[in-house]
Structures are given as C-alpha cells and as structure tokens.
C-alpha cells in the first residue's frame, strides 16, 4: 500500500479543538486544488480486562486498542503500545473476542470526515468523536503518497509536501498546527514497506499523544 503519514491537530496552549478548525483545514485542501471524493471512517476501541478480582488490574495491559481502518474494512488491528505489539486479523476476530468474554470495550471513538485527491496525494481529514456524541475531541489527517510504498524513499518528498501544506494552512492563522509523530516502526517488527499495520500503530500513537495533550492542558 502507499506510504501514509497520520498527523493530528495540536492546539496552541489555551485553545481547544473545534469543528471550525476541521472546516478550515478542509477548505485549505480544496484551496490547493484537492478534489473531494467522499466520506471515510475509522473506529478505535480501548479495551479493558474483565476481571474476577479488580485488585489485580496491574497484571493486564492498560493500553490495549483495536482499530478498524478506512483502507482495510475487512481487517481489524490490535495494538498494545507498551509492549510494541501490533496484530492484524480478519474482522471475525471481533466475534471471537465477544465469545471469550475476557476483554470489553471501555471507550470507542470514531474518526470521520472527507477524502480528497490531489495529484498523487490522497488526503483524509476527519474529526475524532466519542460514540453517541458530537463533541470533537481531536482532528486527524491522513496523507498518502500513492506511487511509493517505501517509508525511507518517500520521507524527503513527504516532508517537502508537508511544508507546502503548512504554508497554505498558515495563511488562515489557526490556533495550532498539524503534527507528525516520528515512530520507530522496527520496534513493532514492521519493515520499510508501508502496510496497514503501520497505520494502526500510527493511530495508537496519535491517540496517546492527544490524550497526553488533554491531560497536560488540564494540569
């Protein structure tokens, strides 16, 4: 699959994220000739163990996530960030997890928005919302460079393209910026050729960063 960067909106200190920023960012893609293609959606679940004795919670991972991605609707991805594990499975795994009754979802988040094509690039910009709520908790942006799958090969080109993007967005004087997290994919056993597992790891780290930002803002 093509190389992808997953960026997220980092608000300036004292400011909050809102759907207005999503609108501005979407308009910005259109202003640089991005062509709107349709909607996209991804979902993320935080799981917690079902325990006989809650006192032993520390024995179990607290950062066990499951993700369904827009690129691979028939697959499901699990990540345990603290142990650098990413697993790809068929969506049948969700029925197996249901039968096992050992973990259950404690929080579910949706990522949803519009997809744009811009030459050899594909943009997906979307808001992060909890289920049963319209409160925007964050904004994510996927940027694919369709001709290349090698992370190393595409890196410089992606950096240059993101500079153009940041310049275009800077004209709108928004209270924050899109940031890219530098990830050591090797730690997760992933190679240089980009796969959906890379995207799943990206999302897990983006979420961790968003949560850390919110917690830091709350002091």
């Amino acid at each position: 699959m093509p190389i992808k960067w997953v960026l997220h909106w980092q608000p300036n200190q004292g400011s909050t994220v809102s759907s207005q920023i999503l609108n501005e960012a979407s308009e910005c893609v259109e202003s640089i000739n991005g062509v709107k293609e349709g909607r996209w959606k991804a979902t993320l679940n935080y799981y917690k163990p079902i325990l006989k004795d809650e006192a032993n919670q520390s024995e179990f991972p607290r950062d066990f996530l499951g993700i369904s991605l827009a690129d691979e609707p028939d697959k499901y991805y699990f990540i345990i960030k603290s142990q650098r594990i990413v697993v790809e499975a068929d969506t049948n795994i969700l029925s197996i997890m249901e039968k096992l009754q050992s973990y259950k979802s404690k929080v579910a988040l949706y990522f949803e928005g519009f997809q744009y094509q811009l030459g050899d690039f594909r943009f997906r910009i979307g808001k992060v919302v909890p289920t049963h709520s319209e409160n925007v908790r964050g904004i994510v942006m996927e940027v694919d460079y369709l001709p290349i799958s090698s992370i190393k090969t595409a890196n410089k080109l992606m950096e240059e393209f993101m500079e153009i993007w940041h310049e275009a967005l800077a004209k709108r004087s928004l209270p924050g910026k899109f940031v890219n997290i530098d990830i050591n994919f090797e730690e997760y056993g992933l190679g240089d050729i980009y796969t959906p597992q890379h995207t799943a790891v990206h999302y897990a780290l983006v979420m961790a960063d968003m949560i850390a930002t919110v917690q830091a803002a709350r002091g």
Partner: peptide, 13 residues
Amino acid sequence: VSKNSLRMFYALG
C-alpha cells in the same frame, strides 16, 4: 491473524 498473535494473547493474560 498475523504471526505475532501468540505474543498478543500472552500479553493479554
């Protein structure tokens, strides 16, 4: 599933 699923199940308890 991918080949590292055993590691995941061990990590899950």
